[in-house]
Design a protein around this nucleic acid. Structure first.
Lengths: 335, 335
DNA sequence: CTGAAAGCGCTTACAG
DNA sequence: CTGAAAGCGCTTACAG
């Protein structure tokens, strides 16, 4: 078995490389016989075009990069998977690039632009890095999925598709309050800034304040939203605060860690402490107790992100900010 | 902001493109001053080389593809992640390619060879497709991670790094038998063939037969190893077999589905039914009950896979078959 | 230590 | 409908 080039195929089919290229790209201006002949030869020899050569020459073809923060985040993985599905019928090619949770997305994006000449970017689960605006200035359309850039300096240049994190968090905490919980602890990330986690912290605080309660530091636990870190943070918190009666966790993964910590402290979920997560991943309903969550509409976020990006790429549409609805799903983990 | 080429840099630095290329590739034969000058210009302009052009020309550079079956499998994701870490200090570049669980890996590999001119492949969690041997004939070294090709027709051409699935399964079932379980059900995949799942089925059967028990069809449940399918299969099975006292599941994910089904049927784990999984993913110890498992040594599999592949690529080493040890970890889900 | 030139495998005006 | 030729941005002998 050998790797054939377009030139080999041309020779074997008795046509020019130009013609083979045309067939390869499904151009209409090739006679049916020629087309069939070339196609037959290509198939016989398992011909696959060299993407490097194609990418080098054909700079105007669309190549979209989906940059995903964290290979091990099931929610983001699901989202990326769905995007690729929605992208399937698009003329553009998609490549996925996983970056470390703490990596610099600006740097990675810049590299992909130089190295692979990508022409559009979807950031999945990224932080908001204002430097990315300079990429938009290069004429690279981009959309941030799951986080809103609407109230940032790059609002007019970078699109975003996200839930309304703030009102979602308000609603979530309200649900806990409505069920009689009063001593609510929040497990979240950095409260500064304008990213999803900061907005959720604000929403939670607003809900509490509306009922005359406060979210003082002691009831806001800042942690990475991983199993390990959330578990450790929860163990630590609940040991000193045996009276807490509910936990609002900013990811389902964090909620799992928190629940395990509560079990270890012999506190029952939901009888003693109600636990509510965010994201809505598959595993939620297979846990014991089944995990309550604020489910993000993954399908819709995926679909809209691809649509918005293509609008920008194909029609030169301006940046848009799409807000999609989240759904509060109460299961066994909430009383 | 503009995308600069090596030519732009050469012009700005007052040298030839050849020299810029040399600096870019850290060749020693460039004077220090020239080197610094060029490097400065590159940095100032955020220069990033075009990977297409490089890949087109430099066919002899090493590009390794890690082909992962299933984007949503946490175990395989972890494995891939670790491989990339071990690969970090290697001179070769790695690209990851996720393929659908039921996709044709041969086809994908062939495409990558043609499109990207990859020079080595690691199949992560793949089935054994004998057609892949023809890729080996093209001189593309390959290693199958997590599944052994030792007793297949491609043993001499494709390496593999895996646990001893058969004896591992024997040991797992023995552990259940030792704890007094007698009516053991196995949730696994296709029993035909020589892949990991078939080997595990054999091992389980051997363990039972050694004690005069049999693994007849009724106690072997064939299912996809997903949460949903394992859950449905378990619900179905345990409804008609209320006397089963243990379940050996061929993945931790499947075990989670099985446990949830048992809860729904009001059967206690482990008091009524012990449950044992395979893989050893992070989430296991955060579940309730904590999941017992046969942990695969991910780190070692990742490291050895990269090593074996590099041996083949750099030293032309023949195909090797590495067996790594699995570890039985008994936690709360087993009585 | 440095540069001019050929060429990797394609695509795309351009000409017929 | 078809082909000859230029060129995408690099790397790499080769010559100096």
């Amino acid at each position: 078995m050998k790797i054939y080039t377009i030139r080999d195929i041309a020779q074997m089919a008795g046509v020019s490389v130009t013609t083979v290229s045309r067939v390869l790209n499904n151009r209409p201006d090739v006679s049916r016989e020629t087309q069939e002949k070339v196609r037959r030869v290509m198939q016989e020899h398992h011909f696959v075009g060299n993407a490097n050569a194609r990418g080098l020459k054909q700079a105007e073809s669309d190549l979209i990069a989906v940059i995903i923060r964290g290979r091990r985040n099931p929610f983001l993985n699901d989202l990326a998977e769905l995007m690729l599905q929605y992208a399937w019928d698009s003329r553009a090619a998609f490549i996925t690039e996983y970056i470390d949770e703490r990596a610099d997305e600006f740097h990675h994006a810049l590299r992909l632009i130089g190295e692979r000449r990508i022409t559009g970017i979807i950031f999945v689960g990224s932080r908001i890095d204002e430097r990315c605006a300079s990429l938009a200035d290069m004429g690279i359309p981009m959309v941030f999925a799951t986080v809103s850039t609407e109230n940032t300096a790059m609002a007019r240049r970078a699109s975003s598709v996200s839930i309304d994190d703030r009102s979602m968090a308000r609603e979530a905490v309200n649900a806990l309050l409505d069920r009689g919980c009063r001593r609510i602890v929040v497990f979240g990330g950095d409260r500064e800034g304008t990213d999803s986690l900061a907005l959720r912290a604000q929403g939670a605080q607003e809900a509490l304040e509306a009922r005359g309660l406060t979210l003082d530091e002691g009831h806001y636990v800042e942690t990475r939203l991983t199993l390990e870190d959330a578990y450790a943070a929860a163990l630590d918190y609940f040991r000193s605060r045996p009276d807490a009666d509910a936990a609002f966790c900013m990811s389902d993964t964090a909620a799992m860690g928190v629940i395990r910590a509560l079990h270890d402290l012999r506190r029952r979920v939901p009888e003693d402490v109600s636990v509510l997560g965010v994201d809505g991943v598959d595993v939620d309903e297979f846990l014991t107790p089944r995990l309550s969550t604020v489910a993000q509409p993954v399908q819709e976020i995926a679909r809209r992100s691809v649509e918005v990006l293509r609008d920008m790429m194909e029609r030169g549409a301006p940046a848009q900010h799409v807000t999609v609805g989240a759904e509060l799903i109460l299961r066994e983990s909430v009383k």
